[in-house]
Amino acid sequence: MKRSHFAIIFLGIFLLVSDIAQATDPVGSFVALRGKATIDRERTLLDARLKDSIFLNDTVATSEASRAKMLFSDDSVLTLGEKSKAVIKEYVYSRDKGGKSIITLLDGKMRSIVGKTNFEIHTPTAVAAARGTIILCETGTIDGKQVTTFICIEGEFTVTGTFPGSEGSTLLTPGMMITIIAGEPFPAAFQSPGGNTGDLLEATNISYELSIPGPAEITLGPGGFVIEQMQILPPYEHEPGTINTTPVTIDIIFPK
C-alpha cells in the first residue's frame, strides 16, 4: 500500500476520533437550579442536578416555577425561565480559535450572556447572532401564531426573521427590542419599555445556591490531633532551628 493511502486512512481515523471526542466532551454544566429541570439526551429523559454536565444535542427543559442556569466552556451563561425548552444545536469551541454555538429556544424565556464564541439563538421565527452581549429572548404561541421577542441589554446583535413572510434583518443596540410574529412583516425595533425588560429579567433570574458543608465532629484536643515527627533524639539536644519541641506539625482531623 502506498504511503499516501496510509496518510489518508490515518487522517480519516484522526478526524473520526476527534469528531467523537467533540461529541462526547461536555460543553457546559448546570450552575443553579430552581424547581425541576430535565435533560433529553439521546431520547432518555434525565433529571438535571447541580453540576451535571451538558452535552451537544441535549435538550434542556424546565417545569412550571422552575429555572436553570448553565455555564458553557466558552464562558457563555444561559438561564432558562419557567416552562422553557432549549436545544444545544451546535457547539464548537477552542480556547485559541474561538468557535460557534447555536442554541435553539423552542419555547419559553431565556437570558444569554454571550461568551467567546460566535453565538446564535434560533427560534421558530427568527435568529439572533451575537458576540459579547446580554440578550433576553422569549418565544411562544399567541393566538395560534409563533411570536419571538428579543431585547438587547448589553452590546449589540443582529436579528433576522426566518419565517416565510417575516423575512428581514435589523441591529439591536442596548435598550432596544423587537417582536417578530410568524407570517407578519418584519417589524422595526424600538426602545424597550422598562416593564418588558424588567419582567424578562425577573423571569430569568436565579441565584446560586452554593451547597453548605456539614460540620466536622469536634473530637479534638488543643490544636487538633497532631502527627508529630518522630522524636529520634532527646529534647534537650535542642539546637538553633529546632528549639520548638514540635518542629513540623500537621493537624489531622479524624471524622467519627
Binding site: L71, V77, I113, G115, T133, I134
Partner: peptide, 12 residues
C-alpha cells in the same frame, strides 16, 4: 457580562 461570567465561574 464579564462580571456575570466571572461570578458564575466562581460559583461552579
Amino acid at each position: 457580562p464579564a462580571y456575570e461570567r466571572a461570578l458564575t465561574k466562581a460559583a461552579l
